[in-house]
Amino acid sequence: MNGNIWVLTSADSVAIATTLILAALGALFTERAGVLNLGIEGILLTSAISSFLVADSSGSIWLGLIVGSLVGALLAGIHAVLSVVLRANQIVAGLALVIFGTGLANFLGKPAEGKTVTTLIKPLSFGPLSDIPFVGPIVFRQDPITYASIVIAVLASLYLFRSRPGLELRATGDDPATVDAQGLSVASIRLRYTLFGGLLVGLGGSWLMLAQSAAWHQAATTNGVGWIALALVVFAGWRPIRLIFGAILFGFTLQLPFTLQAEQITFIPSALMQMLPYLATLIALIALSRPSTRSKLGAPKSLGIPFVRDER
């Protein structure tokens, strides 16, 4: 029964959601501070290949994960300097990061072409729990980073809505002038959370490489997951808990084309099935932007606007 294709698909949807949760959480922290980082796709790719190269040469997947995450923070640092310190156009800066990151990742990935990671991040086993019908494969047969990503999302929710620094973070995204009047540095808060966001995105990219992909397929390694993550933040209304469910939902649309192909269900051509995740994201975005729902979503009010103190 646990070999049933739909149980396996659901289990894989939860697994693939890991990258979405981590990347979207990274974007969420960044955006909550008022910085819009569209460079997620470029960061994912560069951290993915970095983690591959490190894991391949050192033989340690954990070292790969750490270096991949740090590379994510480093690239986000470029965005932070441009948008927070130099007040550049954040939209263009993010796009520049995507192009730079894609080129950099493909450059670094040259020696990795045709290789595979020998040891992958393995799912944990909880003994008899993992064999419970339906629930076992979906809940009790995931890898440690998948569990960690959900724990991080729950902690992020507590941090955002139940702690003093979380309050300051939200205030920085909504009303930076007030935060500044409190004697806190808006620039420093924005820099810190942009870097932290990059770290999470980097972890997501590294996990994608070391647990899912195993081989370097250039830009197809991430295949637009970074953009889906950005849409997911809107979908979740900038709330971490909703983001978990959204990620699993979008994870399902990413997984479904493969399942249908494996089952040889071909009434829809497979190339068209590949559109599903992007189409689903597109529809969700449009549906959410009806004027009646938009105000309830809770986008940070100063998102993407550089903070300039009124000097009197």
């Binding site: 550049a88 263009v92 990061l97 730079f100 990151g101 080129g103 950099l104 493909n106 450059f107 040259k110």
Partner: peptide, 25 residues
């Protein structure tokens, strides 16, 4: 690797964006 071309493309834009600050301020 040929990807140095795309990489430089992105790098030029990143530097141009940073340079904007010196033009505007």
């Amino acid at each position: 690797p040929i990807h140095i071309g795309v990489m430089l493309q992105g790098a030029i834009l990143l530097f141009a964006l940073g340079g904007e600050a010196f033009r505007r301020y």
